[in-house]
Simulated scan of single mutants.
Amino acid sequence: MTINLDPNKVWIDGCFDFTHHGHAGAILQARRTVSKEHGKLFCGVHTDADIQHNKGPPVMNSLERYEHTRSNRWCSQVVEAAPYVTDPNWMDTYHCQYVVHGDDITLDANGEDCYKLVKEMGRFKVVKRTYGVSTTEIIHRILTKNSLPPTHTDYYPNIKELSFYSVAEDAVSKHCYVFQSDLSNVLVDGGYTFNIRDCVYVDGDFDLFHMGDIDQLEKLKIVLHPDKRLIVGITTNDYLSTIMTMKERVLSVLSCRYVDAVIIDPNAASLAQCACEKYHIGSAVLKEGGKFSEYLTKDLIVKRVESQRDVYIARNQSKGMSV
């Protein structure tokens, strides 16, 4: 049977554990390899069992990883239970000629390149891997309780990074606004006319940005205020207890399809004067009825890692990270 491959459809696959901004950056770059107007990106996500067999236990379960990937602004469709070793037959099913992956090598349980076959077939495209962030690095910080201070050169995102992650679903057009401290300090212009009266605001630290947070953002945007733009204020009460840097948290939140603007280190006094309804992440009204928000928290995620501490230490050591 002849398979008609569509140049406007592309495949990416992975574990997407934590689904951090490194994953989001790869998804965004993959979306940019196809047409702005007609392109579609299919994100294949592996099962817990496949990940366990090939690299050890994931921190987030399959349902959490499927839904988090689905919430990414540039993902057109999630393909659940995609094989760990990329299978061209699965790509064919969705009419994707190419699979996209970062410029690092992913090995299966036998030490073989997961993309060996598609590379040999000329159906593999490489994008730049995001430096400095990985699931391994995040687990390392949880295990060592080491966090980067705000004085670190990579603690805050730069304008280029903010602009890159602020784009719309087509991966090119402007969408999200980014502000520093208050609405008078614009770092990135968005793709719409900004009016605070057309917005709703929520703040929190969004550390280990997860489906519990995303559930609440979706409820705000889709259920409670479907006619409003959603502004997210990202705070840091104590960097010593915050695992992710401001850069990692901001870029992760920007990649969420429910977000229209971000304020870095919001000034509470200034925001109090704004004429919009305000919420705090984790409040009862946002968590109520949430599929994930009623149980999934940062503390639970940390406990999952700590409960298998020896396993994760051994996995990280195999990748050159000692605790």
Rank of each mutant, 00 (worst) to 15 (best):
N4T: 09
L5S: 04
P7G: 05
I12Q: 03
G22L: 07
H23T: 06
A26Q: 02
A30D: 00
K36H: 04
E37H: 08
H38A: 02
G39M: 09
K40F: 11
G44Y: 10
G44L: 00
D50E: 15
I51F: 10
H53R: 15
K55H: 09
K55V: 12
N61P: 14
L63I: 09
L63Y: 13
L63A: 12
E64N: 07
Y66T: 12
R73K: 14
R73P: 02
A81D: 15
A82L: 00
P83H: 11
Y84R: 09
T86L: 14
T86Y: 00
W90Y: 13
T93Q: 11
Y94G: 06
V99K: 00
D104L: 05
I105R: 10
D108H: 13
E112S: 09
C114W: 05
L117F: 12
M121L: 15
K125Y: 08
K128F: 08
G132H: 14
I138M: 09
T144A: 08
N146C: 03
N146V: 13
P149W: 07
T151H: 02
Y156Q: 11
E161C: 13
S166Y: 00
H175E: 03
Y177R: 03
D182N: 15
V186K: 06
L187W: 03
G190Q: 03
G191Q: 03
Y192H: 14
I196P: 08
I196Y: 04
V202H: 10
F206N: 09
I222L: 14
H225E: 11
D227F: 02
K228M: 10
V232G: 03
N237V: 07
S241V: 15
M244R: 11
K247P: 10
V250P: 00
L251N: 00
C256Q: 06
Y258G: 09
A261T: 02
S270P: 02
L271N: 10
L271H: 05
A272R: 05
C276M: 15
C276D: 06
E277Q: 09
K278P: 00
S283I: 10
A284L: 12
L286I: 15
K287H: 06
K291E: 05
S293V: 00
S293L: 03
T297N: 02
K298T: 15
D299G: 04
Y312A: 08
R315I: 13
G320I: 04
M321W: 15
